[in-house]
Design a protein around this nucleic acid. Structure first.
Lengths: 195, 195
DNA sequence: CCCTATCTTGACTGCCGTCCAAGACGGACC
DNA sequence: GGTCCGTCTTGGACGGCAGTCAAGATAGGG
């Protein structure tokens, strides 16, 4: 039982570490950032990190949670936009975390905590895509496959950052499979941007 | 200039190292396999590897080349099968190299040799997909996006091994966008060209 | 004033990729 | 046959890494 409490202080220091790790993991890379660098950026001793986090993977999970929570909070303000625009926005919003995407896949095979986070994230992404595809009129029988393709395409776009035009093309085609631009009501056909 | 030559011996030892590395990289993982383990499996001293390969990344490239060459040789005997079957076969053929796929993406950002191999491989995959999509009647205007989606879906399937049924579903939908395959209901779109 | 829980740290271990300089092998040349 | 020199192999060492341990700091409660 905590006899004394300095909750604010504790949370602050933890957040500082996570913030420093977020910047270094996304900018420099996970394997490429030693714990000493995170500690230096956060202004603590290296081993202090090990009081707050079991190991480097646990710190990575904290970083992922932070980044995902931020992105979801931002996404909450966009639910009124059309389906494919939301997708495009999400991809561009998350593109800077490309290195996190790769490291999650790399460590899923060897780290149970990362694997659990990865599975949770896929469930979340699949749920969100299911809603979008349903509203876009994708028939129920091909819904599962469409969702999988959607997840893979989004991951691919994050893994291989490309031009804005090519992103737009890919997401248009993904959101309106078959190249047919007639859709059920509620999802108006957009004018094609770019040429 | 080589005064004496033992080409067979040299090639053999090199191949032994690459074979051992292939098995360990695909089975155990790249980061999880120390050079000492590769050396032990190949029956040489650890540092002997550094005579044949500049560093661990160069060895990885040799492994990738070997695996790709084998796969392409196998694929050469399948060119008469239908388009989606070829795709499915390729995915199942390459699925065991899932860990190689992840490590290539992880190291692309920091290793120039891996990055170059990765870029070459994408070009190859895109060329092969282009032929398939063209023959499947995908219109020229959405060809680029279709190819990108194809690459991403294949990578996704390799990265996230799933059931045979789900693989089949995804590839069917990928190879016949719009759902105009043999699905009876909900068929609101037709292919554009009959050829 | 001391006890105890919370928090921080320096010193250390073991493993890793990689480097270096010395050694072993076997044709080439006199 | 002895010497030389490329080709190939290796033991030993170095620096950097994640993670451990036990000692120290801090501050409220009795």
């Amino acid at each position: 039982m905590p006899r004394n409490r300095r909750p604010q202080n504790r949370e602050e220091k933890r957040d500082e570490i996570v913030a420093a790790a977020t910047e270094l993991f996304t900018g420099t890379g996970y394997d490429e950032t030693p714990m000493t660098a995170i500690a230096a950026a956060a202004g603590v001793a290296t081993n202090t990190i090990y009081w707050y986090f079991k190991d480097k993977d646990a710190l990575l999970v904290a970083v992922l949670d932070r980044v995902l929570a931020e992105a979801l909070a931002d996404a909450g303000t966009r639910t009124d936009e059309p389906w494919s625009d939301q997708l495009l926005w999400a991809v561009e919003r998350l593109e800077r975390y490309s290195r996190l995407v790769t490291v999650v896949h790399a460590r899923t095979a060897i780290s149970p905590v990362i694997d659990a986070w990865h599975a949770d994230f896929h469930r979340l992404a699949e749920d969100m895509l299911a809603g979008g595809f349903r509203s876009a009129g994708v028939p129920e029988e091909s819904l599962r496959a469409s969702i999988q393709i959607g997840v893979f395409v989004i991951e691919g776009l994050l893994l291989h950052p490309g031009s804005a035009e090519s992103r737009r093309e890919v997401i248009d085609l993904l959101a309106h499979p078959g190249g047919d631009r007639r859709h059920p009501p509620g999802d108006r056909t957009r004018t094609r941007s770019g040429g």
